[in-house]
Design a protein around this nucleic acid. Structure first.
Lengths: 393, 393
DNA sequence: CAACGTTCGTTAGGATGCTTAACATATTCG
DNA sequence: CGAATATGTTAAGCATCCTAACGAACGTTG
C-alpha cells in the first residue's frame, strides 16, 4: 500500500454504483469486476476493524463471501501489512484451530485537525481506532487568509513530527462551506474564500488529505464513536451555530455544499436581536456562546440565568422542529460548551421539539450531548481519512 | 423477461454497494461480478431511455463500456424484447452506417395509482415514457379499512383491463406512512394501520407491485418529468399537508419512514388555530385546502382573500426556512390546487423563505408550482415501477 | 487408541464478465 | 478506385468469484 497520493479520495475509491434504498437505481458510470473486488476488500477490512480477532472462516461467514475469496483478500491485505495474524484461537472446539486475524492497528497513525475554534487551531495524532495519542495546538492570534493557512501547515508539520508510525492521512475539519474536493468556498471568520486547502496540503505533504466542514466531520465522529443513530443531526454551538446531518447513515452535503448552515435561519415570529448578517432573530443571536455568555453575565439572579438558557433552548427547538419533522430524525446531538448546553437549555430544546412535532413520529426522538467533548472534530477528521483510505469507519 | 414476481423490488436488484459522495464507503454485503453486470445492463437501458435512437457505439461512448460489452448487453436486452433496432442513421458521414437502437416503448405499460385524494382513488395506464394512455377512478364514498383496500383492487383490475400491452408493474402512491416493503404503517384518513398493501396486491396480481408514500412518489415524478433539481422538496397540499424530499437525487425515507410528514409541525410563536391533532398552529391549520377554502369564503373582500392567501404562504415559508437552510435545498415545488397556491400564496412563501434564510445560500433557491398537475402521484408511481424493474427513470 | 467427525484453510477447475486486438463491413473522401 | 473512417463482431486473455475436493489439526467415541 502506497501512502502517496494527493487526491481527496485516493484510488481505492469504491466505484460508482449507487443503490438507493427503496429500489431506485441511478447508474452513474460503468462498474467493472475490479470495483467489486475493492468493495469486497473493504468489506473484509471493515469486518476486522469492527471486531478484530476473527478467523478467515469467521469473516467468510459474516460477509457472505467464501473462505476461498476471503483467504485471497486477506493474503492481499497481509502483503500490504494492513492485516496480521495474531495467533490461534483458544478454547476447546473440534476441528482445526482457527488462525486469528486483526487489522494491524499500530501500522498507521492519522492526523486530525480542527479549525473550528475561533481562537485556536487544534490537532491530534490518532491511532486507527480513533484514539488520541498526542495533541498539538496553535493560537490563531487573529490571523486570517493566507496567514491562517500557514498556521494549518505549521500545525500539520508539528503533528507529523509527533507521530510514531507512518501517516495514513490528514483529515481537516474546517468551519464554513467546504466542497467535496476540499476547497473552502467560504469561511468568513478565517477570511477564506475559495481556498483550495485540500490541494495545497496535499501538495506539501505526501499523504492523502481530506478536508470537510467541521460539523460534517463531527457528525461522522458521533456516528462512529458516539454510537449515534443513522438519521441524526448534530448541532455545533460555539462562536457560530452550525449543524451536520446524517441521513440513512450518509452525510448530507446539500446542493451548494452548505447543508447544515442554520446559524442564520430566523427563529420565531416575534423579532429578536439584530444579527451581524443584517437580519433579526437568527438562530445565532439566540445561541452563539458570546451572546449567551453576555446575557448570563448580565443576569441578576440564578433564576434569570436559567430562564436565559431555557429561552435559548426553546428557540433551538423552534428552529429544529420543522427539520426534525421533515427528516424524521431519530436523534439530535448537541456539541459545545457543556456548562451552557447541558442543562436547562437541552431540556427546553427537547421539550419544545416534542411539543411542536407529531407525537406519533417523535416517540423515539432523543436529544443528548455529544460523548466526545472537544475532540469531536479531530476524531471526525480521522474518520474521514479512515473511510477514504480503508473504506472503514 | 418474466413479468411475474411479488417482491417490492424484483430480482434485478442492483446489489448492495453504497458509495457515499465524499469518500465514505459503507460495505453492506458482498458484491459479485454478476451485480456489476446488472448495473451495466441498467446503465445501457438508462442511456437508451433518456435518449433513444442511439447506436451501440454511441452507447459505448456515453457509458464508458466497450463496444463489445455494449453489443453483448444489447443482445441480451433485444432477446428480452426490451430493446429494438429502429433502422440506420440518416445523414452523410464516413464509416459504416450506425444501426440505431431504442427501448421498445410499446412493449410494456404501467399501472399508476393515486390514493391521496380524500374522496376518490385515481389511476392510469401509462407508457414507458410516463405518458398517460387512459384513466380510471373510483369514488371513495367514505369507505375505509378493508373496504378501501378492495377499492384499490377494483381500480387496479379496471386499469389492467384498459391496458393494451403487458403490464410492467403496478405503482401505488398512498397517503400516510409507508415502509420500504410497501406496508402502509398508518394512513388515518383511510383507517389503515399496518396494511400490507404491496403484499396483498402482489398476491392478487401476477406483476411487480411497488407501494410508497404519495409525496415521495410525487417528488420522483417531478424529478423525472418536471425537470426538478436533485436537492429539492415537494410540498403537497390538499386535505392534509405533506412533503417529499429528494436529496442528492435520492428520495429520503427517514428513520421511521415518516420523512416529509410536516403537516403537524407547529409554525411560528404566536398561537394559531386548533388542529385535529390537539396542538395549535400546525402547518395544516394554515394550509389544508378545506381550511383555506373556508377562510376565503368567509372573507369580505378580494383584498381580504388575498391577505388570507398571503398569510398562508407566509406560514409555509416560516416552516420551510429551517428545512431549506439545513438541507441547502435548491428548489421547492408546490403541488395542489392551482387556484389557491399559484399566486399570492406562492409569492409570500418564497418571499418569507428568502427573508429568513441566508442570502448567500439561497441565491439560487427557486419555488414553483409543479408542472405535472393532478397526475403527479400516478406518474410518480410509474417512475417507481420503471426504476424498480428497469433501473430507469 | 484408532477411527470418525468437525472445522480450518488451501488447491484445482470452472463460470462469468469485462478488456484488448484484430477483422469484416459499409460508407465517404480525394 | 484506393484510402480513410466508423460500426459491430469475433477471438483470446485477464480478473474475480464460485464449487468441489482435500490435507491438516483438533475432539469424540467405540
Amino acid at each position: 500500500m502506497h501512502v502517496e497520493g494527493n487526491s481527496q479520495v485516493r484510488e481505492n475509491n469504491p466505484g460508482p454504483l449507487t443503490f438507493v434504498a427503496g429500489g431506485a437505481l441511478r447508474p452513474t458510470s460503468k462498474v467493472l469486476p475490479e470495483h467489486a473486488r475493492r468493495h469486497n476488500r473493504s468489506l473484509v477490512l471493515q469486518t476486522l476493524y469492527r471486531a478484530g480477532q476473527q478467523s478467515r472462516a469467521d469473516v467468510a461467514r459474516s460477509t457472505g463471501l467464501t473462505r476461498v475469496t476471503v483467504s485471497d483478500l486477506v493474503a492481499e491485505l497481509m502483503a500490504e501489512g494492513l492485516v496480521i495474524e495474531t495467533g490461534q484461537r483458544e478454547g476447546v472446539r473440534p476441528g482445526k484451530p482457527a488462525t486469528l486475524l486483526d487489522i494491524d492497528r499500530t501500522i498507521f497513525q492519522i492526523i486530525g485537525i480542527d479549525l473550528s475554534d475561533y481562537s485556536i487551531f487544534r490537532g491530534a495524532v490518532l491511532d486507527l481506532d480513533g484514539q488520541i495519542l498526542s495533541r498539538a495546538e496553535i493560537p490563531l492570534a487573529d490571523r486570517t487568509g493566507a496567514d491562517a493557512v500557514s498556521l494549518v501547515f505549521a500545525l500539520a508539520e508539528k503533528l507529523i513530527g509527533q507521530a510514531t508510525a507512518p501517516i495514513l492521512g490528514i483529515g481537516v475539519g474546517s468551519p464554513g462551506v467546504v466542497d467535496l474536493g476540499g476547497v473552502v468556498l467560504s469561511a468568513p471568520n478565517l477570511g477564506w474564500k475559495d481556498v483550495a486547502l485540500q490541494a495545497t496540503l496535499a501538495a506539501r505533504f505526501p499523504v492523502p488529505v481530506v478536508v470537510a466542514n467541521d460539523a460534517n466531520a463531527a457528525v461522522l465522529a458521533e456516528h462512529s464513536f458516539g454510537g449515534a443513530e443513522s438519521d441524526m443531526m448534530l448541532i455545533k454551538i460555539g462562536h457560530g451555530v452550525g449543524a451536520g446531518l446524517l441521513l440513512g447513515g450518509s452525510p448530507l452535503f446539500g446542493s451548494r455544499f452548505a447543508a447544515g448552515e442554520i446559524g442564520h435561519v430566523v427563529v420565531g415570529t416575534d423579532g429578536g436581536d439584530e444579527c451581524a448578517c443584517g437580519k433579526r432573530g437568527c438562530l445565532e443571536t439566540w445561541l452563539a456562546t458570546p451572546r449567551l455568555d453576555a446575557k448570563l453575565a448580565a443576569a441578576a439572579s440564578s433564576a434569570e440565568r436559567e430562564e436565559t438558557l431555557r429561552e435559548a433552548g426553546n428557540r433551538l427547538g423552534i428552529a429544529l422542529a420543522p427539520v426534525v419533522g421533515a427528516l424524521n430524525l431519530a436523534e439530535v446531538v448537541l456539541s459545545g460548551p457543556t456548562n451552557l448546553l447541558d442543562g436547562p437549555l437541552a431540556l427546553a430544546t427537547i421539550e419544545t421539539l416534542r411539543s411542536r412535532t407529531m407525537a406519533e413520529f417523535h416517540g423515539d426522538l432523543t436529544l443528548r450531548m455529544t460523548t466526545l467533548g472537544e475532540d469531536i472534530v479531530m476524531r471526525g477528521a480521522a474518520v474521514m481519512v479512515l473511510s477514504g483510505q480503508l473504506g472503514v469507519s
